[in-house]
Simulated assay, not measured.
Amino acid sequence: MQPIWASNAVPAMNAFLKQADFSGKRVTIITFQQFTDLRNSDKVHENIAAAVKKQNGQVIGTYAFVGGKMGHCAAKNLIDEQIDSMIFPG
């Protein structure tokens, strides 16, 4: 789980992904960003998934959510609504 900044993964996560051993781990990728169109989340997810696979892990799901705007925390109800719509579509 990580934020997307300036349409990219955050540097701290990139450093972690290079060193982590995901052997035997099943990973779900979840990102948050401020843009409602979720721009570039697919690219970020692909990059994270490649790093997980390179370190012998298995990606079992990817989710992109809208979080808070710059300088603001995402409200709990905003996150809950997105999770609910994913679990209970329609």
Rank of each mutant, 00 (worst) to 15 (best):
A49N: 10
I29G: 03
A9H: 02
K54E: 02
I30F: 04
G24K: 01
D84S: 11
Q34T: 10
I87F: 12
G90V: 10
N40Q: 15
A49L: 12
L78M: 09
M70V: 13
Q55H: 05
N8M: 15
D42T: 14
I29L: 06
W5Q: 13
G90N: 15
N8K: 15
A20W: 01
V27A: 06
D37M: 13
M13Q: 11
V52T: 07
F88I: 10
D42G: 15
F32S: 09
M86C: 12
D21S: 08
Q19T: 12
V10H: 00
Q55W: 01
V59K: 02
G68N: 00
R26F: 00
G90L: 11
D84F: 11
G67P: 01
I30E: 00
D80S: 04
A74F: 00
K18S: 04
T62Q: 05
M1W: 14
W5T: 09
Q33D: 08
K25L: 04
V27F: 03
F88W: 13
Q58F: 05
P89H: 12
K25R: 09
A75F: 00
K69D: 06
D84K: 06
D42I: 11
A49D: 09
R26T: 03
M86F: 13
I48F: 11
N47D: 07
S85R: 14
F65I: 00
G71E: 07
L17H: 00
L78Q: 09
I4S: 05
Q19D: 03
Q2P: 04
Q58W: 02
A50E: 06
G71H: 00
T62S: 01
D42F: 14
G57R: 06
P11N: 06
Q82W: 07
A15V: 15
Q55M: 07
V59I: 10
K43E: 11
Q19Y: 02
D80G: 01
I48K: 10
K53E: 11
V44G: 07
A74S: 01
N56Y: 08
A20K: 10
L78E: 14
Q55V: 04
K18H: 02
